[in-house]
Amino acid sequence: MEEKLKALALRYEDLEAQLADPAVYTDAEKLKRVNQELKELAPVAQAAQAWQRVTQARAEAEALLHDPDFRELAQEEWEQAKAEQERLQEQIRLLLLPKDPNDGRGVIMEIRGGVGGEEGALFAASLLRMYTMYAQSRGWKMETVSMNATELGGVKECSVLVEGEGVYSRLKFESGVHRVQRVPETESGGRIHTSAATVAVLPEAEEVECEIDPKDLQIDTYRASGAGGQHVNKTESAIRITHLPTGLVVECQDERSQYKNKDKAMRVLRSRLYEMEQARQAAATAAQRKSQVGSGDRSERIRTYNFPQGRVTDHRIGLTLYKIDAIMDGDLDELIDALVTADQAEKLRSGAEDASE
């Protein structure tokens, strides 16, 4: 670990030196990369510096243990330094875990009503509201790409763009089947129904990472439907893009501008193609372990929301929280923090197993 920390410290110093060079400010792309890497390395560099300081303090306290005049005070300082050293060592181990290259990206989130008919669509609308409130609490930006709503206010399917700091690192654990148990608004007999909605979280791909040949695209325009006033139905501003080699179809009718709709649709298409390529690469790597917190497959049931009992259970880590109203109002941090911790623990175990082989 010490060798790795030394290498990271040297890299951090090199990046700081680059940032002090006026020439780097003439290259916007390079400046962005340097700042991003500095930001990523800063927590490790700071923890490593703290660990070096406390290691030195422990050594100094240990030297005084043999002096009768200072033994009692030195013993107390030595124990404090030892505990802090162990805490920092664990923190550094977590910071040195391999990073998901997509963690800093924005996402395309797709929510679809599943089994349960209208109740499944109403639950999908509840999930959309939950994620919207969570995004607001984190200071993220959320934009609708497409929305297929029901007459009762449910969501058959929708796509939204979410942008901000650490979006994918938090939302990636939300992919899968979300099950709900509650008395539907449409149920007159008061019986509890079980229905579901699916969530897919796709890391947003950059243009350079997913080049699309224009000849592979079929682009159709049509008049948008739904709410939006007279303009919506008078102009062909809605866009449908079909990627001919894969058959993927993306629609966007949220904006009045045809150009803006096309731009949003292309962002969704790039992200879907990027996800398909990532899935292909993962499947080709036979030794790749499946994470404890799930593969992110949207067919995997990940969570149950039981309204009569006021509880939410995440099946991947066996966590049950009795605060369903707060969670449905976007208070997701306790759930997501537990999933992040479980993911880190699994990576630490995998690393230990690999080291012993």
Rank of each mutant, 00 (worst) to 15 (best):
A338Q: 03
V167P: 01
K260Q: 10
V199K: 00
K290M: 11
R289A: 14
T55W: 08
K32M: 12
R301S: 12
L19G: 02
R301K: 13
S350V: 10
E62Y: 14
L96I: 08
H315W: 10
T150M: 06
Y259L: 15
E334Y: 12
L5M: 11
A342G: 05
K215R: 14
D254E: 11
R179H: 03
H178G: 05
D216T: 15
D263A: 15
V162E: 04
Y274V: 02
I317M: 04
K156W: 12
R138Q: 04
E119P: 02
A286P: 07
G190M: 05
G154A: 05
R270A: 09
A338V: 03
A23C: 06
Q56R: 01
H243F: 12
K234M: 14
R223M: 15
M276Y: 07
V232K: 08
K290E: 13
T221L: 14
A20G: 06
E163I: 08
R272C: 10
R138L: 02
M109N: 00
L319T: 00
P184R: 08
S299I: 13
S126V: 03
I324A: 06
T304D: 01
R280W: 15
H231W: 13
Y168Q: 00
V155C: 10
C210R: 13
N102S: 08
A23L: 09
Q292C: 06
N233F: 14
V208L: 07
N261V: 11
Q278Y: 11
G190I: 04
S175D: 12
I219Y: 13
V155W: 07
L65V: 06
R129K: 09
L319Q: 02
K215T: 10
A74D: 08
D331A: 11
R256Q: 00
H231R: 02
E76M: 13
A121Y: 05
E119H: 01
I327N: 03
G114C: 05
N148E: 06
M130P: 00
Q49Y: 12
G226D: 00
A283M: 03
N102L: 09
Y131P: 07
L244T: 11
G113T: 01
L10M: 03
Q56G: 10
V250H: 00
S169Q: 08
E277M: 05
F173W: 05
R138F: 04
